[in-house]
């Protein structure tokens, strides 16, 4: 099963430039055309399932506006003998 990831968008910094939209290998990012940031841009969003938390969006983001998380399977603390 592919890793499950998600992003947090800092809407103060996001300028809706779409560099992350183009760079996202999963093609799950787009601008939220229904909303505006305080600076008047449409912020980026995850619009579908499939984010793996690869962070390529954050690597190309000029505004350091993205925080990327990934869900990691916790290893069992004590394995059976």
């Amino acid at each position: 099963m592919p890793a499950k990831g998600w992003i947090e968008v800092n809407e103060l910094h996001c300028k809706g430039c779409e560099l992350c939209v183009q760079a996202c290998p999963q093609e799950v990012m787009s601008l939220d055309k229904t909303r505006l940031t305080p600076k008047g841009y449409h912020p980026v969003q995850l619009h579908a399932e499939g984010c793996t938390g690869c962070a390529i969006c954050a690597v190309v983001c000029p505004e350091a506006a993205l925080t990327v998380y990934r869900q990691i399977e916790s290893r069992p603390v004590a394995a059976a003998a």
Partner: peptide, 14 residues
């Protein structure tokens, strides 16, 4: 965290 037996890793932050 949406799933059991998982934890969250911060992959990238400002």
């Amino acid at each position: 965290n949406p799933l059991p037996n998982t934890h969250t890793q911060v992959v990238y932050q400002r």
